[in-house]
Design a protein around this nucleic acid. Structure first.
Length: 468
RNA sequence: GCCGAGGUAACAUAGCGGCUAUGUGGGGGCCUGCAGAGCCUCAAACGGGAGUUCAAAUCUCCCCCUCGGCCCCA
C-alpha cells in the first residue's frame, strides 16, 4: 500500500517518496512562547503527531523537529509588561507547552530548536543572502529582495502584482519593494536585542524556520507542516529564503491543517476566543479530546464546542466498551477452539492502514474501527469464544492505540486494594438482595454508586464495575 | 478585489463516476427483575441550476452561501 499525501505545493494528492532512503525529515511550526497553548495548538500537535506515527509505521525513520519562537512581538510585549527577562517568560511557556502536550498524549519530537539559541546561524544566513544579492540592508534593517526570485507565490498561488493591489501594505520608505519582507529589524526602545553587522536588533519572523529546519534536517527535506494560516506569508517566504540560501529545493511535501473554530470564527489569541488545553482537560478526558480532534480529516476546520466534545465522549465509549468486553472475555475464552475472528482482526488493521494511507484520513480509520467493533460485539455474544480470536482482537486494538492513543488501559477502578475489597462487599450485598428479589435495595446501591461516578453492570459473566 | 478550502440525512463527519457510509440522536424489536452493555431493524442525504455519461454526491460550467489567507497567528 502506498502512502498518498495532499501537497499544498502542487495542490494534488501525491505518492509519498522520501528524499533520502535513510531518514524522513519532518518540521512543524511550533508556538510563540508567551502564553498557554490553546485548542488550536492541540489540533496541530495531535494531527502532526499521528502523521509522524503513520510515516514511521510505513517503515521510515523519521526525524521530527518542532521549533519555538521566543523572540517575536508577543513575547517581547509580554516580557516587558511583566517586567521579566525574556528567557524567564519563554522558558516558562516552553515548559507549559511540554506539560500540555504530554497530558494530551502527544509524543515528543526529536529536536525542539529555540530561535534565540540560533542567533549566530540566523545572522550568518542573513549575511549570506546579502552577499548573494538576495537581500539588502537599509537603515539597520535587512530585507529580502522579492524582485530577485522567479517563483514568488509557488505555495500560496498568488501573483506578486495581485498581492500588491489588494493588500494592506504599509508603504515603507526603507523598502525597495513593498512586498520585500524583513530578515532583520532594528530594536525599538526597551526591547531585547542581539548584535549584528547591521544593527542591534532581532530577526524577522520567517528566517528562523529556514535556518533551524535546514540545520537539523538538511537543505532539502520531506515534510513541513503547520496551520493553513501560515501558508502565506510565512511558509511562502521560508521557501524563498531557503532556496536562495541553498540553491536547492527546500521541502518536498507541504501539509497544512485546518483551523480550530469557535462558532464560525477561528480560535486565536488575538480574537480572544480561545480555550486553553489546561481548561479543556479539566472538563474532558484527554483521550476524548484526541478522539474529537482525530474524528475529522486534518485538513478540515473543526468547530470547538461542548456539545461536540460530549458527542465524542459517547462515540468513543462505544469503542472502549467493545475493548473492555473483549478483555473481560479473555477469562472464559477456550484455547482449544479456532475460528474466523483472527482473520477479521488482521483485516481490521489493514483497513485502518488503508485509510491512513489516504492522506492520513484518521476519520476514515476511526470509521473502520467502528466496523470492526460491530463484528467483535457480535462475536462476543456467541456461545463459544476462542482464545486465539480474543488475543487477535486485542492485538488489533493495541495497534489502533499505538497509532491514535485513544483507549484506556483497563476498565477497572483505582488499582487500590481497599477500594476493590469495599466494592466487593457492596456487590455481594447487592447480589443477596437481588437473589431475594429485594430490587429496591439492589437498585439503591447501584444508584448511589452511580452518583459517586461508579457504574455497576450485571452481565452474563458476573457483575462488573468501573469508574466513569 | 485576488488566492485557498468547503457546502452530505436532526447533528457531526467519510466517500469523490455504478455497491447508499460511520458515529451521536430518533422509531420499533430482542436480551434483562429493571438498568447498563450489546444485537436486529426502520426513518432520514448529497447548496441551486444547466451539461457530459448507459450511469453523477462524485466530472464540466454558471450561480448562491460559509470559512481561511493577503498586519500578528498552529
Amino acid at each position: 500500500m502506498t502512502l498518498m499525501v495532499q501537497n499544498t505545493l502542487s495542490g494534488k494528492l501525491e505518492e509519498f517518496v522520501p528524499v533520502r532512503e535513510d531518514q524522513v525529515g519532518m518540521y512543524v511550526c511550533g508556538i510563540n512562547t508567551y502564553d498557554d497553548s490553546h485548542m488550536g495548538h492541540a489540533k496541530a500537535a495531535v494531527t502532526f503527531d499521528i502523521i509522524r506515527r503513520h510515516v514511521e509505521k510505513k517503515g521510515y525513520n523519521v526525524k521530527y523537529v518542532i521549533n519555538f519562537t521566543d523572540i517575536e512581538d508577543h513575547c517581547i510585549e509580554r516580557a516587558i509588561k511583566l517586567d521579566w527577562p525574556l528567557d524567564k517568560l519563554t522558558d516558562k511557556y516552553i515548559a507549559e507547552y511540554h506539560k500540555d502536550m504530554s497530558a494530551l498524549g502527544v509524543r515528543k519530537a526529536d529536536v525542539y530548536p529555540v530561535a534565540s539559541h540560533h542567533m549566530g546561524d540566523i545572522i550568518d544566513a542573513i549575511q549570506k543572502l546579502i552577499d548573494k544579492g538576495m537581500a539588502y540592508e537599509s537603515g539597520g534593517d535587512v530585507y529580502f529582495r522579492v524582485a530577485k526570485v522567479k517563483n514568488y507565490g509557488v505555495l500560496s498561488k498568488q501573483k506578486l502584482e495581485d498581492m500588491q493591489a489588494g493588500a494592506r501594505i504599509d508603504i515603507d520608505e526603507k523598502k525597495e519593494n513593498p512586498m520585500d519582507f524583513t530578515l532583520w529589524k532594528v530594536k525599538k526602545e526597551n526591547e531585547p536585542f542581539w548584535s549584528s553587522p547591521w544593527s542591534e536588533g532581532r530577526p524577522g519572523w520567517h528566517i528562523e524556520c529556514s535556518v533551524m529546519s535546514m540545520k537539523y534536517l538538511g537543505e532539502t527535506f520531506d515534510l513541513h507542516g503547520g496551520g493553513t494560516e501560515l501558508v502565506f506569508p510565512h511558509h511562502e517566504n521560508e521557501i524563498l529564503q531557503s532556496e536562495a540560501l541553498s540553491s536547492k529545493p527546500f521541502v518536498k511535501y507541504w501539509l497544512h491543517g485546518g483551523l480550530m473554530n469557535v462558532g464560525s470564527e477561528k480560535m486565536s489569541k488575538s480574537l480572544n476566543n480561545f480555550f486553553t488545553i489546561k481548561d479543556v482537560l479539566k472538563e474532558f478526558d484527554p483521550l476524548v479530546v484526541r478522539f474529537f480532534l482525530l474524528n475529522t480529516h486534518y485538513k478540515k476546520p473543526i468547530d470547538f464546542n461542548d456539545t461536540a466534545l460530549e458527542e465524542a465522549k459517547r462515540s468513543l465509549s462505544r469503542l472502549q466498551n467493545t475493548l473492555d468486553n473483549t478483555r473481560n472475555a479473555l477469562a472464559k475464552a477456550d484455547d482449544t477452539i479456532t475460528d474466523g475472528l483472527v482473520g477479521i482482526a488482521e483485516q481490521a488493521i489493514k483497513n485502518f492502514d488503508k485509510a491512513m494511507d489516504n492522506d492520513f484520513n484518521s476519520r476514515d480509520a476511526i470509521a473502520s474501527m467502528f466496523d470492526f467493533a460491530k463484528e467483535v460485539n457480535k462475536y462476543l455474544e456467541s456461545t463459544s469464544i476462542s482464545k486465539n480470536s480474543i488475543e487477535a482482537i486485542l492485538r488489533s486494538f493495541d495497534e489502533f492505540d499505538d497509532r491514535l492513543t485513544i483507549f484506556r488501559e483497563s476498565s477497572g477502578g483505582l488499582d487500590n486494594e481497599l477500594v476493590d475489597d469495599l466494592m466487593q462487599v457492596l456487590i455481594d450485598i447487592r447480589k443477596d438482595a437481588r437473589a431475594s428479589k429485594n430490587f429496591e435495595l439492589s437498585d439503591k446501591i447501584r444508584d448511589k454508586l452511580k452518583e459517586l461516578g461508579i457504574t455497576i453492570e450485571d452481565t452474563a459473566d458476573g457483575v462488573k464495575w468501573k469508574m466513569s
